[in-house]
Amino acid sequence: MSNKKGGGDLRRFYIILAAVALVGIAAVGYSVGTGAFRGATHVPLSLEDTDDPRRLMELAVPVIDGDPDAPVSILVFGDYLCGHCATFSLRERPRILSEYVETGKARLVYYDFVLNPEPEYGTFLAARAARCAGDQGHFWEFHDQLYLNQLRWGMESGKAGIFQRYAEGMGLDGPEFRACLNSDRHAVEVSANREMALALGLGGTPAILVGTGQGMSRRLRDYFFQSVQEAVEALLEGVG
């Protein structure tokens, strides 16, 4: 008699427990699926006073690789979902680095040019993520990771979670990176970089400009090493 009653109690208890577990799992699942990185700024900001070139130059902060006093500047405007930008960054840039940047002849100046500002593309967030990694001294590593995997993260939803995993995979401080990504940090610089690219009339990416920092830089016809080499050598001769 008591065994039967005990079995019935236990069955009822298991049903209640299973129901609570299901509701709980659904609630956590919902939070993971819909609430991920709610605090993150996914789209470029509307900046004020960017009609003033001086103000725009103040706000548009590039990431610089190499000697800041190098005689030649190689300006790169890139978008993390642009295939040619990936080719430039992964194939041409290493040669530029070894020939000119590491030798102190030129510096590489990277500007984000988010071509598609809609949040579903995730390129604005990607640009911010790279800068969040830069806060921990890993901008270029993250930049290369984004280009290397652009076909993967570009096709996926939940991009912030993917970037978070990239950061943790590189050994970055996970909570620090998450806090940065889940905020509006670097949104002004990335937005201003885009405004500057538009103001310069750069219609596409990658846009490579080479100059000495004195006067206007010249936009190259393509992004291949040879073009960069010709332009840099010509400028170095002029400087020398």
Partner: peptide
Amino acid sequence: ALLGLLVSVYMLAYALGFTGD
């Protein structure tokens, strides 16, 4: 323990960056 487990899973998901605020 089940309630505690659910709370911990939620906090773990947050710590690993799978949830928003």
